[in-house]
Design a protein around this nucleic acid. Sequence first.
RNA 1: GCCCCGGUGGUGGAACUGGUAGACACGCAGGACUUAAAAUCCUGUUCGCCGAAACGCGAGUACGGGUUCGAUUCCCGUCUGGGGCACCA
Length: 1005
Amino acid sequence: MLTSISAHSITAEQYQKLYRTGSNMEYNFTQIEPKWQDKWKDDGIYKVNIDPSKPKYYVLDMFPYPSGAGLHVGHPLGYIASDIVSRFKRLKGYNVLHPMGFDAFGLPAEQYAIEHGIHPKKSTETNISNFIAQLTKIGFCYDWDREVRTCEPAYYKWTQWIFLRLFNSFYNRQQQKSIPITELIKAFENKGNADHICPGDNSIHFTAAEWKAYTEKEQQDILMHYRLAFCGYGEVNWCEALGTVLANDEVVNGVSERGGHPVVKKKLRQWYLRITEYADRLLTGLDTIEFSEAMKEMQTNWIGKSSGAEISFELRAMSHEQKNGSQLTAHSSQLLVYTTRPDTIFGVDFMVVAPEHELIEKITTAEQKEAVETYITYVKSRSDRERQAEKKITGCFTGAYAINPFDGREIPVWISEYVLAGYGTGAIMAVPCGDERDFKFAQHFNIPVTNIIGDAFDGTEANATKDAILSNSDFLDGMKMRDAIEVVINKLEAMGIGKRKVNYKMRDAAFSRQRYWGEPFPIVWKDGIAYPLDESQLPLELPDVESYSPGPEGEGPLANIPEWTNQFSEKGVLETNTMPGYAGSSWYFLRYMDPHNDKTFCDRTISDYWNQVDLYIGGTEHAVGHLLYSRMWTKALYDLGHIGFDEPFRKLLNQGMIQGSSRFVYRVQFKNIDEVFKTGDITGGATIFIPENDYHKLIEISVNDNKGRIDYLKNKYPSSKVISNAGNAISVTRLHVDVNIVDGYELNKDEFVKWRPEYANAEIILEDGKYICGSEVEKMSKSKFNTVNPDTLVEKFGADTFRMYEMFLGPVDQSKPWDTKGIEGVHRFLKKLWRLFFDETKGKIWTDAAPTAEELKVLHRTIKKIEDDTERYSFNTAVSGFMICVNELSDLKCHKKEILESLLILITPYAPHIAEELWQQLGNSGSVLNASYPLFNAAYVTETSKEYPVSINGKMRTSLTIALDATEEQVKEIVLANELVQKWMEDKPLKKLIFVKGKMINVVV
RNA sequence: GCCCCGGUGGUGGAACUGGUAGACACGCAGGACUUAAAAUCCUGUUCGCCGAAACGCGAGUACGGGUUCGAUUCCCGUCUGGGGCACCA
């Protein structure tokens, strides 16, 4: 019928169109996919509600920050994986919660607003719409009714509410949990703070009577030192360019994570979360959840627990009168140091205190005063970045001495920037023979080194061992260092000059930003006291303003809006900082459970049902930020009785990063040197593009050797007009070229010129008629022109192909470069699947005939394979399993409905659209999304015999088919009787025959 | 510097507890159908050697060694790529 149409009467395009629409038996994804997406949406098929009759399963993606750049192919990788798991669990009979939302507050939207004058609310909304459109096309099964946006007042009302809970709580160390601060006040009224060491300032001690005598301001200042969310002065990471404070995890190598701006230390009034109180539980909690070892290790390192001892040393300074004698005068102060190695106490040759240490002023002698001041000025002049970039050995002697409590030795006290004020006590005892840094310091300043570990110390390098035997150590002599630690701590405690101490590297988390686009703090200030707003006043909404310029130092833009800050003027002035990005993301997984509740953040009965997130999928970049904060918030909410579990994510799966595969062209431009001198611009002359090899050759020739470079090209390409007429100045550049206009590695010249019209007249040197681009694997980014947009792929191949191809690329948790080429293979597979149902000419070809044993074997082998692989997130091998199945069924010419129907259910999680279309075509009334997963029946796949590989001395020589129930004796007989086996045994006697049932046979001679 | 994780054909990758290395795809080569194109199908494809061919020989999972009847898999050393931490006493 089609062949009767004369090809000459219509264009090729028309012909193709006719051919396509003429046969609706072809796999037409452009029609199928939107159809089912709309239908599923209309039917509300992804709506989910509590159903106690079914087991629940909660699958969560890390919600995206809606950036203006939109999605590239790297983003959906994790979303596809979670979508597959959700659909799989649903078919398995679970009630599946699988929501999506947007982490919509944050710096970039505000930066964008400042630069382009578009309100962050507006740009955020636009970006979200784009994201949703992109996500929808891929066919994800989100229950969009549950969408949350952290920037919506209905959402951040509860972020503020939780903040107030944290503000109104403290961590009770006896009970190891957070409780309301009202309990603490009661305790203070009864007994003072004897039972509750002040976590913010452990020098605060008072009795019940004293407490009652304090003014309200004094009481509130003390309570602030206990609150889980508190305001205080502290050294913060101040970023001038962004005009805000950053948390430790937002600072990378001394510059801001976003934008790479310099960050300096500054003392400012800030809000904090007292996450350090949870350090130990955050650590032990790791044992109860399934995170990758790498992830657990990152968190463990970040928390940085170490145990040792605090030791206080008597201080003496040399007095003016006695400076010529050896006598030291007693000093009123004590120097408190922290060490993990109290066993090395007899090896202490000097003390080092941080430049910020408060004792410095007190203990510095008159002689050293000037040197110390000079040194401190120097340290202050150095930024964090400088400190990290060049680690110089610097320091200054204070003139003071500490006394070793065991042998009375006088130990000089130094100042150095290598000791950090914020860790331990900000002072250390230096043991140069056992610590690399101490050793280098001692060498640099010629401080004599005491050896307490005998041969283990060679005088040229410190040895940090714990296994050496101590010498020169008085009562510890002959003891193993490891054992001596306990002995020393016990003795220090008995003497009352030291105690066991655990320290953490983790600091309290900075929780305020001097920004507009974030949650306002529900706090008013009056007479220096912070008062929480009443719950009924929440949400405290952001004012709608035009300007976002920073307020006065340390205050946010909100400080410029008095009508907003004074809206509760009878109570006080509103806090002008806003909360950081991680506030909203610390609890969003709870809001999804009960997204429209305006009575509470999440009803307890509902959170009891959905409980923990069973599977959380996202990148590793949140290892020490979001994942730690949300764990802490969960623990706090649990302690306060608002939820019934204290870890948010039962299992975490980290998807790998999809890298870009960049393409390069190699540009050479010629100009006359006179012109270059005149204009200073070498570019813009006659242009050629050369092959990669030539580029590398040219690069080897010196940049200044214009003649050498041009001669090389003239020799290589004598026929090139451009080169023979070239100017005498040359510039050679490697340029990124858009991967989307390169076919594999071959440059498409027309597309290239269309993309970069300025090169329309350039000469492109071809090899074998082609220009082959250079390539490199890099991070996917717009500026490198290596991004691939999922939309174009979905348009060209369909969502099902796209989904399966992303999975087929390799293991989800592995990083890999994107390569569009292979997508054709997956597309072919889906067409092949389609052809099991439809024939181009015959149309429907499925039958109701009973399947053969062979066909059932193929099906059930596939059921097992897909089920196992999906269960262990091995999606790439599952896709290959589908391919094998379809290949085999095609070979068997199997068009049996019974087989095909089960196969459709299996493939639903991976390619839902084609599955639904064919499912309906088969005549099923309900949706395939609600089908029930086929049951694996081992009986269909059991074999009676097996083709055993037979090795002689471990080398595979032949294979023999033997019944599976054969005994070892029978096998031996069969094997030895075999001709080939005999040949390879070469008449040597049999030493041993190894027979592993169902696996292999090895003949040892 | 310290700590983790990797290294398998031309490419992405497979081999789940030590048991036939290279599944499944891409690419490439050849062929069929077609006036042609698209689509589809078939054959071959780790490397080297012999050969008309083989169910012929040898080597082979970064490299060198070890354990084992047998190692991509376990152990030791070296090289190399990626990630994390980085004065935390």
